[in-house]
Design a protein around this nucleic acid. Structure first.
Lengths: 126, 126
DNA sequence: TCGCGTTATGCAACAACAAACATAACGCTT
DNA sequence: AAGCGTTATGTTTGTTGTTGCATAACGCGA
């Protein structure tokens, strides 16, 4: 859930049905660490077993996906992927337990915020 | 308030003090209508009485500020500025009552969300 | 041994957005 | 009448992020 719909009216004359959109992310030392884009990628890597297929699934280039994971690893100082190059299927990547634990924390925060917003604003007349 | 600080820990080993950043905006037909950038501009116009000084105050170019207001007016279908060209002080712009009423609604939503997040996450250990 | 699919990485091309520049119109002030 | 500061708008330049291309290394399978 990344938005809610609600009706905004003012001056007894104007009524708009609009979305409230919400974007949340974690930041460290002024730099973005983890947001929905990278989360999507990591989860896709977890599901597919490779950066290549995760990138396709997420609709971004491999080059980009790889760079995003690299940046996240650097900013976090934690190894996020176990990878193999060559071999059956050409190789692959899977999330480390650290990566899984971290994204779980992030998802918990996101869910809590989004569901509160949904409960308090969805279909509201304001 | 656009963020809160909190401690994220996992696997009994990793602890990070990070910011949760939150950005909210209104959207109509898939297009952004009003967010913090345009809100800042409108409020600055209200305070200074001209787009020119509002742009300076907000750290953006006049060209940009003017375009933002124009886009907002178009997407909302509501006149937002009363302007004069020439004359004392060169002219100026002021918000219409519709503009004031609209940004008031937007600010109320933003404040409610931000303060809830602050109350529920600030300095939290998670 | 060759091919395939993957990771890994640099670099050029491109797209989106904002700044900067250039004019024009306007109406008070001097 | 000239100048100033503003609105208004088109055009050019610059910045940032993403894609696309190119290349290398790797290890299993045919």
């Amino acid at each position: 859930m990344r938005y809610v719909r609600l009706n905004i009216s003012f001056l007894d004359e104007f009524i708009f049905n609009m979305k409230i959109r919400i974007k949340i992310w974690l930041e460290d030392k002024g730099r973005p660490v983890l947001g929905d884009g990278r989360l999507l990628l990591l989860k896709a890597i977890d599901e597919t077993g490779s950066i290549q297929s995760a990138a396709k699934k997420s609709g971004v280039s491999y080059r980009h996906a790889w760079g995003q994971v690299k940046k996240l690893e650097k900013r976090l100082g934690v190894k996020l992927l176990d990878h193999t190059i060559g071999g059956k299927g050409g190789g692959g990547s899977k999330l480390t337990t650290e990566a899984k634990a971290f994204i779980e924390k992030y998802e918990a925060i996101g869910k809590k915020i989004h569901s509160w917003v949904e409960e308090n604003f969805e279909d509201l007349d304001i």
